[in-house]
């Protein structure tokens, strides 16, 4: 009797508008996952996701959080920026590519034209951004040199921000690496952030990323 009642109740629940609502809802969810899956399958290469546009060609792990933006400005020039964050290790990668006009604006604005000066300028700038919100931070220069990026010799500098960030009320040190090179009057800027404790691990991931990246200058 109770079973019969429940079935009757269920039957009265599934009237055409409810069925249409459920079909629309499930259709939207399926469409959403269909689009996500199509995006995934059309960009997967082995175990990595592949991206290409007029500025760069790069590959990154499928579980990384990434976002990109192209800033178009007819007066100051165009730039392309991309950031990547790894979910299971403290790793942040930032990439900015300036077009000729944007490079001209950059060099005129800061009065610097060589990659080495740009590296130093960027480190000072980053320190001055962190310092007001965290007065305990100390900048420790670690290493300067050149590195091959997309077939070009780029200038880099690695430094340590002691007490760079706070996690669970514990201040931690952050390793920061800045890479710059100028090719065909276009600046390419790459930044890497990693936790000092896990530096080796995160740096090897970053190296793989860097090795696979091709900048189209």
């Amino acid at each position: 009797m109770l079973l019969q009642f429940s079935f009757r109740w269920l039957r009265s629940l599934f009237v055409p508008p409810v069925i249409i609502f459920l079909v629309l809802m499930l259709g939207s969810i399926l469409g959403s996952f269909g689009t996500a899956y199509y995006t995934f399958t059309s960009h997967i290469r082995g175990d990595l996701l592949w991206f290409e546009n007029q500025y760069v060609e790069l590959e990154f792990p499928r579980n990384w959080y990434g976002s990109s933006e192209e800033y178009l400005n007819s007066t100051y020039g165009n730039t392309f920026s991309a950031v990547f964050v790894a979910p299971n290790v403290f790793l942040y990668i930032g990439l900015t590519i300036y077009d000729e006009k944007a490079t001209q604006t950059y060099t005129q604005m800061y009065n610097i034209s060589d990659a080495h000066s740009m590296v130093q300028f960027q480190i000072d700038k980053t320190y001055s951004i962190i310092f007001p919100s965290n007065s305990n931070v100390t900048l420790v220069p670690l290493e300067n040199g050149t590195i091959s990026v997309s077939g070009y010799n780029a200038d880099y500098s690695i430094c340590l921000f002691e007490n760079g960030y706070t996690e669970n009320d514990v201040q931690k040190n952050v390793t920061y690496m800045v890479i710059f090179y100028v090719d065909k009057q276009q600046i390419v800027q790459i930044a890497f952030w990693g936790d000092e404790d896990e530096f080796e691990r995160s740096y090897s991931i970053f190296e793989t990323f860097l090795y696979q990246m091709k900048v189209k200058t």
């Binding site: 939207s28 959403s32 959080y65």
Partner: peptide, 22 residues
């Protein structure tokens, strides 16, 4: 497959469809 967020145009379509339905 969280990396597909990088392909923002297609990701927005998928996300908006999901939000539309739910």
């Amino acid at each position: 497959m969280g990396g597909i967020i990088f392909f923002i145009d297609l990701y927005q379509v998928a996300r908006n469809l999901f939000i539309f339905g739910l």
